[in-house]
Design a protein around this nucleic acid. Structure first.
Length: 494
RNA sequence: GGCGUCUUGGCCGAGUGGCUAGGCAGUGGUCUGCAAAACCAUCUACAGCGGUUCGAAUCCGCUAGACGCCUCCA
């Protein structure tokens, strides 16, 4: 008996526009593909939010006992800056600007990407393939599409024939667009393109002489079209038909639409059962943009070195903040929001620390099993992490009530209570426990402050409040806060 | 211009045709030598207008606004 058999989940499928009962193709196994980053600059915070959403999905599916193969690619082949069939490839551009090899650009930002994700406590995907590592597979796919008559070659480049494809298939079914509208609304190109129609997209592009990243192919020395790599890699590692495909909302069109078209054209079947799209992250109510200063790098959150925030926030606080919003909602990244989340997060962590010291009774006064099921219900309902967190705070309330003696809990219930909290907070949400003063690695500081706490206690016992307050206030101004509790005084630093 | 998503209390942010979301802040209280911290309790909602309904913040329409996509950015 697996957990997933008793916890059916519903997923909002972008394709149908409805929440659907999740049923994997192979019982007990889940194949999930998520479009990864193009590594030509530091990872975008919005990108982090998207991957965090799928990290949570991955974690929950695993928790339910599914064997999940999670594939998230790295786009390291340069692609053109626009679909109008002109412009420079972004990695090459960066390489030119910094006078380094394109692969140095790729390496630098791949490392940055992994560093940031590690700080946020992401689980590594099962496979993290690169586009440049799958050129052969992409060329084979192009051959299939050409052979099936849905692409044409011209001047060494190969384009997907959207108009022809649409005659027998439905191009636009994911993004709810129809080709007629698109054709009517397209601005005329300058006639520089080899494409038959503006809606067509490149499968293979012949490289200009100055283009550094290039590979041989039957059509020319060139490079693959952007949409193709995901089709090639998802097919290779998950098959022609798999369970879940995710990505940011902005990839729905054209990228994911094109993926569907490529799969149908090459393999004759729609590749994905459940399409999931994570919504955008905005900042202070507006789109993040470097040009307006309305922008923050993930790392700047941890250092506090950005004008948009007043202090540094730990990765777990930032993670908690993001998971307090549903993945399909637009989330506004603000200093006030972060501050609020930090306090809530700390309260949650304090309560979890108390779990180990709760008094046990012979019976429980709370209905623990139904609370546990409420936590599962939240996640089963399209991975509703905000509701889960609301339930966890209800758990916090229980913990405090038990601590105060207003509620009671049996040993058996306490064990499953602890278990459930740990599962959801650390395994599913992927939060990291905050360091309490007790396991502060800085022993010298801890010893020193504990000495001062002791001296302050003695002063208070002697009613020398001038001294005791002086110790307290001067520590406060150093960023060390004393917390008087029933079981003595603890401290925290910030 | 086209398509789509959204508009909830001081702030963030869920959800639902009739039943308290939650967090932060505020207020009252417990604790304290006084505070802080912690804990307990608690106030303020569902953009506007019209319609469907016994009943809508929840469904439908219109208006206003926001955001996204339509140039590959998640």
């Amino acid at each position: 008996m697996h957990l997933y058999q008793e916890q059916p989940i519903k997923i909002y499928n972008s394709l149908s526009g409805e929440k659907e009962l999740f049923k994997p193709i192979n019982d007990g196994y889940v194949g999930m593909y998520v479009c990864g980053p193009t590594v030509y600059s530091n990872v975008h915070l919005g990108n982090v939010r998207t991957f965090m959403s799928f990290d949570m999905v991955f974690r929950y599916l695993k928790h339910l006992g599914y064997k999940v193969r999670y594939v998230r690619n790295i786009t390291d082949a340069g692609h053109l800056e626009n679909d109008a069939d002109e412009g420079e490839d972004r990695i090459a551009k960066k390489a030119r600007l910094e006078s380094i090899e394109p692969m140095e650009v790729v390496q630098r930002y791949t490392v940055d990407f992994h560093n940031i994700l590690n700080k946020f406590n992401f689980l590594p995907p099962s496979i993290e393939p690169t586009a440049t590592g799958h050129i052969i597979e992409q060329i084979e796919l192009i051959k299939d599409i050409l052979q099936n008559g849905f692409a044409y070659e011209i001047n060494g480049s190969v384009y997907f024939d959207v108009v022809k494809f649409n005659e027998s298939h439905d191009y636009g079914k994911l993004s709810k667009r129809n080709l007629e509208d698109m054709i009517h609304n397209t601005r005329e190109l300058d006639g520089q393109s080899d494409k038959r129609n503006p809606q067509d997209f490149a499968l293979w592009k012949k490289a200009e002489p100055q283009h550094i990243m290039r590979w041989p192919s039957p059509w020319s020395d060139g490079f693959p079209g952007w949409h193709l790599e995901c089709t090639a890699m998802s097919t290779k590692y998950l098959g022609e038909h798999f369970d879940i495909h995710g990505g940011g909302m902005d990839l729905k069109f054209p990228h994911h639409e094109c993926e569907i078209a490529q799969n149908e054209a090459a393999k004759g079947q729609s590749p994905v059962n459940y399409w999931m799209h994570a919504n955008m992250l905005i900042m202070n109510g507006k789109k993040m943009a470097k040009s307006t200063g309305n922008f923050i790098l993930p790392n700047e959150i941890f250092t506090g070195d950005n004008a948009n925030i007043t202090k540094a926030f730990s990765p777990s606080v930032a993670r908690f903040f993001m998971l307090q919003a549903h993945y399909r909602s637009v989330l506004d990244f603000t200093n006030d929001g972060l501050l609020a989340s930090e306090k809530g997060f700390n309260r949650l962590m304090e309560a979890i620390n108390h779990l180990d010291h709760l008094p046990v009774s012979t019976t429980s006064s709370i209905d623990l099993p139904s609370w546990i099921q409420k936590c599962y219900d939240a996640m089963n309902d399209d991975f509703n992490s905000p509701i889960l967190i609301a339930n966890l705070f209800e758990g916090v309330k229980y913990i405090n009530q038990i601590k105060e003696g207003n509620e009671s809990i049996s040993q058996e219930d306490l064990n499953s209570f602890k278990n459930t909290i740990h599962t959801f907070v650390f395994d599913v949400l992927g939060l990291l426990p905050s360091q309490s003063s007790s396991d502060n690695s800085d022993d010298k500081l801890t010893g020193t402050v504990e000495l001062l706490i002791k001296l302050r206690q003695e002063a208070r016992a002697n009613k020398n409040f001038a001294l005791s307050d002086q110790i307290r206030d001067e520590l406060t101004s150093l960023g060390i806060q004393l917390k008087d509790g029933k079981e003595g005084t603890t401290f925290s630093t910030n």
